[in-house]
Simulated scan of single mutants.
Amino acid sequence: MTDYGEDPEIEYSELSGPCTQDSVTVEMNIYRIKGSSEGWALEVVDAENNSTTWDDLFATDAAALEEFNKALAEVGIQEFVQFTPTNVH
């Protein structure tokens, strides 16, 4: 059995936080492996814990925030919210 050790420690950017638009709030997370120079990941999580994550890493946390703001302006916050279908009887 291979021991991979503990999960890496995650460092969150101070730029992370909630974002509200049109009465909808999502949590915008910018993070990386602590001490890593590989770049910052960008993830948006809706109220039902559904996640949208960008494939590419960003050189800085500010660049990740800029990309989020650009996407928010282009497609709106609803793009990041996934609705669970309800059954109607």
Results as ranks from 00 to 15, higher is better:
residue 1 M to N: 10
residue 1 M to Q: 10
residue 1 M to C: 06
residue 3 D to I: 04
residue 3 D to Y: 12
residue 6 E to C: 06
residue 6 E to N: 09
residue 7 D to K: 12
residue 7 D to W: 09
residue 8 P to N: 12
residue 9 E to Y: 10
residue 10 I to H: 03
residue 11 E to V: 09
residue 11 E to Y: 06
residue 12 Y to Q: 11
residue 12 Y to C: 08
residue 12 Y to R: 14
residue 14 E to N: 13
residue 15 L to G: 07
residue 16 S to Y: 07
residue 16 S to Q: 14
residue 16 S to F: 07
residue 18 P to T: 15
residue 18 P to I: 05
residue 19 C to Q: 09
residue 19 C to E: 13
residue 19 C to S: 13
residue 19 C to W: 04
residue 20 T to D: 07
residue 22 D to P: 05
residue 22 D to G: 04
residue 22 D to S: 11
residue 23 S to D: 15
residue 24 V to C: 13
residue 25 T to L: 05
residue 26 V to G: 01
residue 26 V to F: 04
residue 26 V to W: 03
residue 27 E to F: 05
residue 27 E to P: 00
residue 28 M to Y: 05
residue 29 N to K: 05
residue 29 N to A: 06
residue 31 Y to R: 11
residue 32 R to M: 00
residue 33 I to F: 09
residue 34 K to M: 09
residue 35 G to C: 05
residue 36 S to L: 11
residue 36 S to G: 12
residue 37 S to I: 11
residue 37 S to Y: 15
residue 38 E to V: 04
residue 38 E to P: 01
residue 38 E to W: 08
residue 39 G to I: 05
residue 39 G to Q: 06
residue 40 W to V: 00
residue 40 W to Y: 05
residue 41 A to V: 00
residue 41 A to Y: 04
residue 42 L to H: 00
residue 42 L to V: 02
residue 43 E to H: 02
residue 43 E to G: 01
residue 43 E to N: 02
residue 43 E to C: 08
residue 45 V to Q: 07
residue 45 V to R: 04
residue 45 V to T: 13
residue 45 V to H: 02
residue 46 D to N: 06
residue 47 A to E: 15
residue 47 A to V: 07
residue 48 E to T: 04
residue 49 N to V: 06
residue 49 N to K: 07
residue 50 N to H: 11
residue 50 N to G: 04
residue 51 S to Y: 12
residue 51 S to M: 13
residue 52 T to D: 10
residue 53 T to C: 13
residue 53 T to D: 09
residue 53 T to A: 11
residue 53 T to W: 04
residue 53 T to P: 02
residue 54 W to F: 10
residue 54 W to C: 08
residue 54 W to Y: 13
residue 54 W to P: 00
residue 55 D to N: 15
residue 56 D to H: 10
residue 56 D to Q: 14
residue 57 L to K: 14
residue 57 L to G: 03
residue 57 L to N: 09
residue 58 F to A: 03
residue 59 A to V: 11
residue 60 T to C: 10
residue 60 T to P: 06
residue 60 T to R: 12
residue 60 T to D: 08
residue 61 D to E: 15
residue 61 D to T: 08
residue 61 D to P: 01
residue 61 D to K: 03
residue 62 A to E: 15
residue 62 A to W: 03
residue 62 A to L: 09
residue 63 A to K: 06
residue 63 A to V: 01
residue 64 A to W: 02
residue 64 A to K: 00
residue 65 L to A: 05
residue 65 L to P: 00
residue 66 E to H: 15
residue 66 E to S: 15
residue 66 E to D: 15
residue 67 E to V: 03
residue 67 E to H: 08
residue 68 F to D: 00
residue 68 F to W: 01
residue 69 N to F: 07
residue 70 K to V: 03
residue 70 K to A: 07
residue 72 L to C: 07
residue 72 L to H: 06
residue 72 L to D: 04
residue 72 L to G: 03
residue 73 A to Q: 15
residue 73 A to T: 14
residue 74 E to C: 08
residue 74 E to T: 10
residue 74 E to M: 11
residue 75 V to I: 14
residue 75 V to K: 15
residue 76 G to A: 09
residue 76 G to N: 08
residue 76 G to Y: 04
residue 78 Q to L: 05
residue 78 Q to N: 13
residue 79 E to C: 13
residue 81 V to W: 12
residue 81 V to Q: 08
residue 82 Q to L: 08
residue 83 F to T: 13
residue 83 F to V: 11
residue 83 F to Q: 09
residue 84 T to I: 12
residue 84 T to E: 14
residue 84 T to Y: 01
residue 84 T to W: 02
residue 85 P to Q: 14
residue 86 T to A: 09
residue 87 N to G: 09
residue 88 V to L: 09
residue 89 H to V: 11
